[in-house]
Design a protein around this nucleic acid. Structure first.
Lengths: 219, 219
DNA sequence: ACGTTGAGATTGCCG
DNA sequence: CGGCAATGTCAACGT
């Protein structure tokens, strides 16, 4: 990695046109060929950049970075305040833990959180356009399809509506009603759900996790 | 801005849990308080980070960054290879051209590009599921809703179809037809638009801008 | 290789 | 400050 602190102006010509006037900034050149230009704010996002694969041509007072699509990033350098290189080696990489998969587990264990008396029939119930997250029966024995999202958006409502349309073709299930479960349900999704006769529930992930832990300690 | 090259391991506890094993990386601390950890690849995205507002507590061999939501980023430092600070000042900022907002301005000024005799009624016409980009009247006085995208995709067609559904509930507008305008309309979007009775138009941004400039010089 | 989907999305706009 | 949409979205995953 090469780190240069320089007074420079920047021009990007590609999917759009962008310009940065002359100022002091950090230029970061990574081993993968990418170049990014950072100011002293905007969190981790650079002011401008070029993603790999691309090539850096360095001239006197002028860097030109070109990628395969012909987009160019031109850096005009007035003064270099610092120029430093370091060999970082290959990073051993990151391990993550997903929230959304866990949400399905928790709701499969406690479907009654979504509606009183709701009982799980199966997870990932298959239809010919994809699996329904949870298939349940309510207190009256009627079928209920549950779609789980971290964020409930219009897309989620339409997805669930398509599932319900397929499930209603099955005489053993009909009539099937739908519940959209999400940590947050957007206003637009609420309107569309109402128009489609679909119920929505906002789920408190932390509280649900707490209750599950409570259950575990009880048994 | 402070730039530290160090051998370190990193733990993030917040919206998810993540761990980075010991390796040499760049630690970037910006004036806005943000901290990011870069490896020598992954383009401009850091391996891990904390967005502002947050606070950095620095101890011997250990940095702890905490934000207001209680999320923490812990950096355990084994060795510091370099530690450098620079005052970059406030960046004068980026100017852009060629994004969707621009396209909307140009089409609002020249709606006849989309269909002969088309006249603008209003921009950003509100519905309860979001605003329609352009509401127009055609040569016969019939209402036309225009959805503008940089790239016309299936999502854009469905979005416009939902707007049309809502607008058709308004007796003063009904019947409303739709036009999807984009610099590029994808094949799948063309098929779906046809099935929904929606017209699509590919717009040449550079030519449109040229014509608008032409108009300006004429008057 | 291409299309689809999620992201600790981030960022800017507008009410 | 919150809701909402765009992003040069990027990146992972399935076909």
């Amino acid at each position: 990695m090469r780190l240069v602190i320089a007074t420079c102006s920047v021009d990007y010509q590609g999917r759009l046109t962008a310009h940065l006037p002359m100022a002091t900034r950090l230029l970061m050149v990574k081993a993968d060929g990418s170049v990014s230009i950072h100011g002293d704010d905007r969190a981790y996002k650079p002011l401008n950049w070029m993603s790999p694969p691309c090539r850096l041509h360095e001239e006197e007072g002028r860097w030109v970075v070109v990628n395969q699509r012909g987009e160019t990033l031109t850096i005009t350098i007035e003064a270099v305040l610092s120029d430093q290189s370091a060999d970082l080696g290959v990073d051993p990489g990151l391990s993550k833990d997903g929230v959304e998969a866990h949400l399905q587990e928790l709701l499969a264990a406690r479907p009654d959180v979504l509606a009183e008396g709701l009982r799980l029939v199966t997870r990932e119930f298959p239809t010919d356009i994809g699996p329904v997250d949870l298939l349940c029966r309510d207190a009256n024995g009627a079928a209920v399809a549950v779609e789980i999202k971290r964020r409930g958006d219009i897309d989620g409502v339409e997805q669930l509506a398509r599932y319900l349309e397929r499930l209603d073709l099955d005489g053993r299930l009909r009539p099937v009603r739908g519940i959209l479960a999400a940590q947050q349900v957007k206003p637009q999704a609420r309107v569309l759900a109402a128009a489609r006769g679909i119920t929505w529930v906002e789920v408190d992930y932390d509280r649900l996790r707490g209750e599950s832990l409570g259950d575990l300690t009880l048994f």
